[in-house]
């Protein structure tokens, strides 16, 4: 397709090239700044706890542990098995607590309720609590990133 007239003048071409290339160079400078400002959040693959600290938990009780920078809860169920949750409400990130009398997790911020398996049953939360894998290996209680079940 042959054009009758140029799309742009030589001056416009030069101006555009200057502006565009300058933008590209400054963009490449911007990249490290953006990466610096948003550091990657690294979640631990697993957390190893001393099983002795959790062995004598009464059934239907919880104990906290650090999951990276978030709070985690180890729960001893009625049948003696253990579950692990990330104790962050799926609504707006408040820390949840466990109420043993009602066998429910409760978020005080907006009155969110989860049952003893972490399924959301009342209030604003739209997703269940995040479950973590939990395994006893000798003296260690290992909490894993992948959810079991």
């Amino acid at each position: 397709m042959k054009l009758k007239h140029s799309l742009f003048t030589r001056r416009q071409f030069l101006n555009g090239l200057l502006g565009g290339w300058l933008a590209a160079l400054l963009g490449s400078f911007l990249y490290p700044i953006v990466r610096f400002v948003f550091p990657p959040y690294r979640e631990p693959d697993q957390v190893i706890l001393l099983f002795a600290d959790y062995k004598d938990m009464p059934p239907n009780s919880v104990r906290t542990f650090p999951w990276g920078s978030k709070p985690g809860l180890v729960k001893k169920n009625d049948d003696g098995s253990y579950s692990a949750f990330v104790a962050i409400c799926t609504h707006l990130d408040c820390n949840v607590t466990y109420l043993p009398e009602q066998k429910k997790f409760f978020c005080a911020c907006h009155e969110g309720w989860y049952d003893e398996k972490g399924i959301n049953i009342g209030g604003p939360p739209s997703r269940p609590l995040r479950r973590l894998g939990i395994v006893v290996e000798g003296e260690d209680l290992i909490i894993k990133k992948e959810d079991v079940e």
Binding site: I33, F36, P39, P40
Partner: peptide
């Protein structure tokens, strides 16, 4: 060490 490209900044 930890922050990405922090040493350059």
């Amino acid at each position: 060490t930890e922050v990405p490209l922090g040493w350059i900044l």
